[in-house]
Design a protein around this nucleic acid. Sequence first.
DNA 1: CTGCATCCAGAACGATACTG
DNA 2: CAGTATCGTTCTGGATGCAG
Lengths: 142, 142
Amino acid sequence: MSTEPIPISRLDGTHKRTQRLLIEVADVLGHKWHPVILAQLLNGEPHTFSELGSAIDDVSNKMLSDSLSTLQDAGLVDREVVSEKPVRVRYTLTERGHDLEAVLDPMLRWGREHLAGEAIARSDARTSLRRSGAIGGEVADE
Amino acid sequence: MSTEPIPISRLDGTHKRTQRLLIEVADVLGHKWHPVILAQLLNGEPHTFSELGSAIDDVSNKMLSDSLSTLQDAGLVDREVVSEKPVRVRYTLTERGHDLEAVLDPMLRWGREHLAGEAIARSDARTSLRRSGAIGGEVADE
DNA sequence: CTGCATCCAGAACGATACTG
DNA sequence: CAGTATCGTTCTGGATGCAG
């Protein structure tokens, strides 16, 4: 039923309601570590505080803790204490959080095509031919 | 080659490169007015400074001007002086900017489903049945 | 009509250190 | 191990007024 690979359409920013929604969503995803944390949690696996911390590794305790609190408040992640002795907390995505994959994926995709490294140079590279799986490239970094 | 409407997948936040891209994209879309302006430009054609200003109407001159400059710097919008007497400037999307539709649309979609006014209530709306025009609902706001 | 200059309050980010 | 407390710096959003 899907018309095209990229139907997109009624983005209609003319409505105030639409504008507000965009602002609200941007407010959630506009924080430096939120998208990264969410992406991390989307991968599945067990995700404890320290696991997240080392996986992201450029984030400080405060930032991680702060971000997780905010995300939890927003109802995007769920917090669950797993162990008592060495305190362990497991973070998982709520449904709303999981649904954000539909936004994070395009974000990443766009980033890969348009600013992967800062070598822009006004190239009008209309390379729209990269639609298929070629994207999973994941160059082994660092 | 999954040709599904929503393939989504390698969000793999485990890679630093991926994390950085997400951060960079979030940095662009994370500004209050950027998404709104972009959405506005995605709509129709003629978009001058004042047109944008009245279409968005909760934005001040400074914010609009500031945002437009940033977006222009980022290579997302193009600035073109149209008239000299009553100075008129026309803003249009560059290709990169236009491609952001692929991100803005999901953002709006997610917003509508998960925080449109706060009336969520856990609808497991995995109901991809809303794929068609149903979305254009655009409740007459204001 | 555009949009820059100033001034400001508040939020985001980050490093470090400390508690449960 | 998880998370909080502080402190300080930078950025952002916004009002207002002036200039090209």
